[in-house]
Design a protein around this nucleic acid. Structure first.
Lengths: 214, 214
DNA sequence: CCACAACCTGACCAATCGGTCAAGAAAAAT
DNA sequence: ATTTTTCTTGACCGATTGGTCAGGTTGTGG
């Protein structure tokens, strides 16, 4: 009778199952896009009957939304390294490393996000206007402060941020093209290291900073 | 009877109509993706009955393929400025300008291309392996030659190219996000000029070259 | 043991999709 | 003028889709 009591049940099993569905959905949405993905495909990849999907996620759109939101929050959290830095060189280098690692670890999620924005952000428009806009403004001020203190070359902070986003996400979003140009094989550990080094070298040098020595 | 005779007919009308369909399809595919686009939507935007679409383009996929191929060739042609340059500074600056102008002039086409690659290039995989691979290898050699001649800082030519692609296409592919962060309004003429200037400044400085003075 | 709630799913449905086709209209060729 | 070819489209079709639901199973508290 007590409404406060939380019956543990197999809550564990539930969360795990939801996570498995979200993971399968992330892959399918990344490969086929929202319109091309089908609940049946996601169900097959999660090894569940289709009706079970609708038990945990009432509609295709609600499932999609949760996939996108999950990625968005991973993205935001990675951006924390920007703040905990002591200066522009360390901050931007750490941000590049973090975002490159995300591109490597969550290629499907990155593609879902890119696809969503590409098609006009019909589902997460509110996030762009609130959370992302706030975050962007904050980092622009940090960069501008660094410039004002003479710690880096004066550049437009907004376009510097765009360049950081574009370049790092490119390795996830266009991974298929990159792999094809790499002879059809995925990037090796050394390839990724070289990619990160190259990106940091050009961008940091580009804003008057010393790239970290390997 | 003569097979050689080319009846002019309203050939003009036919090509024009095909072009109108391709333009409508480009927009719809860009907004909804291949899976989300419907022949009915494209027909409505082209102001034609759906059955007429199937007269000019037998299947949805053939229409999509032509849209993608059209963009690809525009992209390749823009890359010519790379060759006609006398040196790295002019060549790369001209390439950045050209690709930024393409992002501005053909945002829908760029999005279709990005969406195609994003989802594993199911339709234009052969182009990636042949034409694009050849083009990339050629430009890498040009850049390497500039480096060997001491005309620019040694950087990995492959990752420099990726950065050029990523940054310039970002302004088309993520235009919705950029507009949202721009207060919900499209970039002005001045905004585009500032974007091009910023990109050239950071990248050219990043590889040891002098950015062009405005 | 029972009752109740949460969980699960095979079978089903209305809606929508890409694509077809017959029948005609318009234009060219004869 | 008449045949032939090209063009046009309303009506239609099988297949697939997202979503529903009744009925069953499982687990839990009393």
């Amino acid at each position: 009778m007590n409404v406060e009591t939380k019956p543990p049940r197999q809550k564990e099993g539930r969360k795990a199952r939801e996570a498995r569905i979200l993971l399968a959905a992330e892959k399918v949405f990344a490969e086929a896009g929202f319109g091309g993905a089908t609940m049946q495909l996601i169900a097959d990849m999660a090894d569940l009957p289709k009706a079970s999907l609708h038990y945990y996620f009432p509609t295709k759109e609600s499932l999609y939304r949760q996939v996108v939101e999950k990625i968005f929050h991973i993205w935001l959290r990675a951006a924390d390294v920007f703040d905990s830095a002591s200066g522009p060189a360390e901050g931007i280098a750490a941000y590049i490393d973090a975002k490159m690692e995300l591109s490597r670890a969550y290629p499907a999620g990155s593609k879902v996000w890119a696809s969503e924005v590409l098609h006009g952000a019909p589902v997460i428009q509110d996030y762009l206007e609130t959370t992302l806009a706030d975050w962007t403004e904050g980092r622009m001020k940090v960069i501008q402060a660094w410039i004002d203190e003479g710690r880096m070359t004066p550049v437009n902070p907004r376009h510097l941020l765009y360049m950081l986003w574009a370049t790092t996400q490119h390795y996830a979003d266009f991974s298929h093209q990159i792999e094809t140009l790499n002879g059809g094989t995925p990037l090796s550990e050394a390839d990724w290291a070289e990619a990160k080094r190259s990106v940091k070298q050009i961008i940091l040098t580009g804003i008057g900073l010393e790239p970290p020595q390997p």
